[in-house]
Amino acid sequence: MTDLAMAATALGKRFGRRRGWALRDCAFRLPAGRVCAVVGPNGAGKSTLLSLAAGLLAPTEGTITVLGTDPASARARVGYVAQDKPLHPQLTIAETLRMGAHLNPGRWEATAAERIVAAGELDPRRRIRALSGGQRTRVALALALAKRPELLLLDEPMADLDPLARHELMGALMSQAAQHGTTIVMSSHVVAELEDSCDHLLLVGRGRIRLAGEIDDLLAAHTRVSTTTQAAERAGAAEAVAELPDLRAHTVVESRVTGRQLTALIRPAGRLADDWRTSAPSLEELILAYLRNPEAASLTPAAPEEALA
């Protein structure tokens, strides 16, 4: 299965000359059928990336391909829910759904939308402007799901929802993915929120892609190591840690020396020293380590694990 839902090469976006690059040198490949988390701190470029994929913004440089074509041509097969859930405030829920049906002839599945609205116990006669943020999110997701898109782009979809609605709507999204093989891309700055639902990760930090790939592969590529030997004492300052003979062969993402204890998160390249204790990092540990260390080498398909010279 080599179908790609999204692919980017050297993708960059600059808003005006003054403000600098919101996104730069982004390269990734997202196979179809994945549920992908776009994670990163506020202002990292997540929304810009999703807007580029939705075709609402044009790249300043590089290219982004969506469902095998350019974003504008793919639009009929893509669902996009922006962070502020734009809906017409004057319309009722029923009118909003009818509008969705008119705008998506041939693709619309009315029962899907009605089921999601009904699950929130929303009266279809209510106007959008009278809804709470979470209720508006529910209507926006109902619209996006009823379109039966091949690719669903969701910008912070869970932010306004209470835990019950979050679980239920995430279940509805996963059900859509299971039934139709829909590719889902959703952003959040809360990793825990997405961890169980996603199998693919794009970590965005300071406008760059820091990690891209299957979550299992990314976790398997990293190891936490610790040692209590003189190595730690010799290293002294954390900056020197990466220069330790035992560590030099590997890519050090983060390291810390506390007394006689040295701990590091590394991408091993070959055998590890025998006296090191190793453990598998959690996804959250991995993500935080990369975000805390902007200088650490990124791991993306564009920068495959280079054999260190």
Binding site: L173, S175, A178, S197
Partner: peptide, 14 residues
Amino acid sequence: AREVVEATAINPNT
């Protein structure tokens, strides 16, 4: 898989 993910909100591939 669909029934499981609808109830648990976990990823279908899992």
